[in-house]
C-alpha cells in the first residue's frame, strides 16, 4: 500500500482525529477535572461530531482512561530514557518532578477525584505509579549499593517521596496560589528529601 493510497490517507486521517480528540480531552480534564469533562464538550472543542468521539473511544470511561494512559506513557518514556543511563536517584527524582510539573493540572484532578472514578482508572493509575516506582527503585538500589543513601525499604522510600510531592500538588493553593506547586517548590522538596535519605558525609559525621 503506497503512502498516498486512499486507504493510507483514510488511516492517517483517522489517527489524526483520534489524536485531536485525545488532546482536547486532556485539556478539558486539566481545566475541569475528569468527573466534569463531558464527551459532548470534547467533541465541540475538537470540532468533530459527538458520534465521532465514540468511533474512536467506545465509552466516556474509555476516553478518560486513555487520557490517563497517555499521561502515563509520557512520564514512563521520560523516566525510562534516564533509567537506561544508570542515572543517580537525585536525577531520577528531578526528572519525575519535571514530568509532574508539566502535567500538574491533570495530576491534581486525578489525585482529588481518584476514589470517585470508575474502576478502569485504578489500573491506569497504578500503571503510572508502577513505572515511576520501577525507576526510583532501580536508582535507589544503585545509590544504596554505592553507599550514597541509607538502606531504606524501597516501598517506604517511594511512598515517602510520593506523599510529599502529592501533598504539595493537592494543596497547592496553600503553597503556591495560582501557580505550579512543583515549579515553585520542587527544588526545595528534592533537597529536603535527599537530605533525609543521604548517608552522612565525613564532614557532618565529625560534627557529632
Amino acid at each position: 500500500m503506497s503512502s498516498h493510497s486512499p486507504e493510507s490517507q483514510r488511516a492517517a486521517q483517522k489517527a489524526e482525529t483520534r489524536r485531536r480528540i485525545l488532546e482536547h480531552a486532556r485539556r478539558l480534564c486539566a481545566r475541569r477535572g475528569f468527573a466534569r469533562t463531558r464527551t459532548v464538550d470534547v467533541a465541540k472543542a475538537a470540532r468533530v461530531s459527538h458520534g465521532s468521539v465514540f468511533v474512536h473511544f467506545p465509552s466516556r470511561e474509555a476516553l478518560m482512561a486513555a487520557v490517563v494512559g497517555e499521561m502515563a506513557r509520557e512520564i514512563t518514556d521520560a523516566l525510562h530514557a534516564l533509567g537506561s543511563q544508570d542515572a543517580p536517584l537525585r536525577e531520577v527524582l528531578a526528572k519525575h518532578l519535571d514530568c509532574l510539573a508539566d502535567r500538574e493540572d491533570e495530576l491534581r484532578w486525578l489525585l482529588l477525584e481518584a476514589p470517585l472514578l470508575p474502576k478502569g482508572f485504578d489500573a491506569e493509575w497504578v500503571g503510572v505509579q508502577s513505572a515511576v516506582a520501577h525507576h526510583i527503585a532501580e536508582a535507589a538500589a544503585r545509590d544504596m549499593a554505592a553507599g550514597r543513601i541509607r538502606e531504606i525499604p524501597l516501598h517506604l522510600l517511594f511512598n515517602t517521596w510520593i506523599g510529599l510531592v502529592h501533598h504539595y500538588v493537592i494543596h497547592r493553593e496553600l503553597f503556591a496560589p495560582g501557580r505550579s506547586a512543583l515549579k515553585t517548590h520542587g527544588r526545595e522538596l528534592l533537597d529536603h528529601f535527599m537530605g533525609l535519605i543521604s548517608t552522612p558525609t565525613p564532614k557532618s559525621r565529625s560534627k557529632r
Binding site: 497504578v126 500503571g127 508502577s130 517511594f158
Partner: peptide, 24 residues
C-alpha cells in the same frame, strides 16, 4: 512481588492489579 516491594501494595491488591495489567 514487584508491586509489593516497590509500592507496598496489599498482596491481594497487587495480584489483582498485575492480573488486570497482563490482561491487556
Amino acid at each position: 512481588a514487584f508491586l509489593q516491594r516497590t509500592q507496598g501494595l496489599d498482596p491481594g491488591v497487587a495480584r489483582r492489579t498485575a492480573t488486570a495489567t497482563m490482561a491487556k
